[in-house]
Computed example of a mutant assay.
Amino acid sequence: MAVCYNTKLHYGVISNNCQHFVKDCLGVIGKSGDEKQFEGKVGELVDLLIKGGAQNTVPGDFATHEELNSHVMANLEQMTEADMEYCLCLYHLFHAFKEKESECSDRTCQEKNLEEALERKKASIA
């Protein structure tokens, strides 16, 4: 599948993007890509990516909780609602992979600040 995408197809935001690639890979292993593949917070992130795709404007990937915190602290005021929802899903994902499924013990965690900012933004629109 990777060879096909790299040699025969040209990337496009609307067609032949990463979501199409994943769906095609799922088809190769016998999954249609239409059924829900993931549960919990990972499922929420996957659903958000499928529905929103390139709509959020959050740059880059965050390999660590600290990188995500730094981005949120530096950009919170400029984030769109879609950006905030995407970052919240990433927080949930980082927290889901911690050893204990409890509140994040990282004192710099910006998840609560981000949730509050999203609620304020939604309230100001309504």
Rank of each mutant, 00 (worst) to 15 (best):
V72M: 00
L114T: 08
Y86W: 09
T80S: 15
E111K: 15
G52L: 05
S105E: 15
H95E: 15
E115R: 12
V3A: 10
N56R: 13
R120I: 04
E101F: 03
F94A: 10
A54Q: 08
D47Y: 05
N75A: 04
G27K: 07
D34M: 04
T64S: 15
G27N: 04
L114E: 02
E39C: 04
E39H: 11
A123F: 03
V3D: 10
Q110D: 03
M1E: 00
M1S: 11
S70L: 08
T57C: 12
C109P: 03
C4Q: 08
L45Q: 10
C104N: 11
A54V: 12
C18L: 08
G33N: 04
N56I: 01
K36C: 08
E39V: 11
H71G: 09
L26M: 04
H95M: 06
K112F: 01
T64Q: 09
T64L: 09
I14A: 11
K8D: 02
T80Q: 14
H20Q: 10
E99Q: 06
K121T: 12
D61L: 08
L118T: 03
E115I: 05
R107K: 13
K121M: 13
F97N: 11
L88Q: 01
C18I: 14
N69F: 03
K23A: 00
Q55K: 14
C89F: 04
D34P: 00
L76P: 04
V58I: 13
A74M: 13
H20I: 03
Q19S: 05
E101A: 11
Q55D: 14
E116L: 09
L26H: 00
T80D: 11
A96H: 14
I29W: 01
E77R: 07
G30D: 04
K23R: 05
L48N: 06
N56W: 02
H20S: 06
G40T: 07
K36G: 07
Q110A: 08
E35K: 08
S102A: 15
E81N: 09
V46W: 02
G60Y: 12
Y11V: 14
G30C: 06
V13I: 11
G40E: 07
H65Q: 14
Q55C: 01
E103P: 11
E115L: 01
F94M: 14
A82T: 14
G43C: 05
E66S: 06
A74H: 12
N17H: 06
M1W: 04
D83H: 06
S70W: 05
